[in-house]
Amino acid sequence: MINTISILLALSSLFLFGSSRIRISIRVVIAQGFLLGIAFLLHNEEHLNSSTWTIAISSMLLKGIVLPWLLTFVLHRSRAKLEIEPYVGFGTSLFIGVLLLGFSTYVAWNLSLTSTVRAIPPALFSTALFLIFCGMFLIVTRKKAITQTIGYLVLENGVFATGLGIGHEFPFIVEMGVMLDIFVGVFLMGIMIFRIDKAFDHTDTHRFNTLLDEIAPEHNDSEDMESAQ
């Protein structure tokens, strides 16, 4: 069952690579949020108690409803176009995606073969790594601030997927704290996308490069000396 969910998660991410519309992407993230929640419950079948339920439900709430809603809200309020503007074409993205999946699987299997730790199924771990790389890839290749936020969410999902195996070993408060952090983080990002939109009339982060290091004129030139006089 976990394996099925892992595959679904991986596929959904690959789908993100090929998707050209922001709204569809948000829906994929919603799906991932619910999938992760279910996977969490499944993984902790033997330890189901109030705290596992709370974590699962709040995670689904956060990742499946609150954050996507926030993103949609931002999307509507800002004057951004609804299409994704990638640096890397969708086809190429898909190809790279497959490569990344391969790499993650290699790392995960390589590790699980030699490792004594069996808490996390290799399939899930490879998917988790894949999601992390996917998230980074999305941030790297998509121009808009909002798509970068989506990338961040995917990345977080990947991390969360890794955490599935250890839910009962992690204190409840910490889990909640992690979720709070993610929520506040995305919330802040949302606010900033608003501000960016207002200040720049666009949310393209590739035009977001005023903070640079120019090369100052040479400091100790004799010409410079004379001009200073």
Partner: peptide, 17 residues
């Protein structure tokens, strides 16, 4: 090597990756 700090945040993420 000054080009390394070019201001494009998505490339910075590549550094991390």
């Amino acid at each position: 090597f000054r080009f390394l700090q070019h201001g494009h945040v998505h490339i910075y993420v590549i550094y991390v990756a």
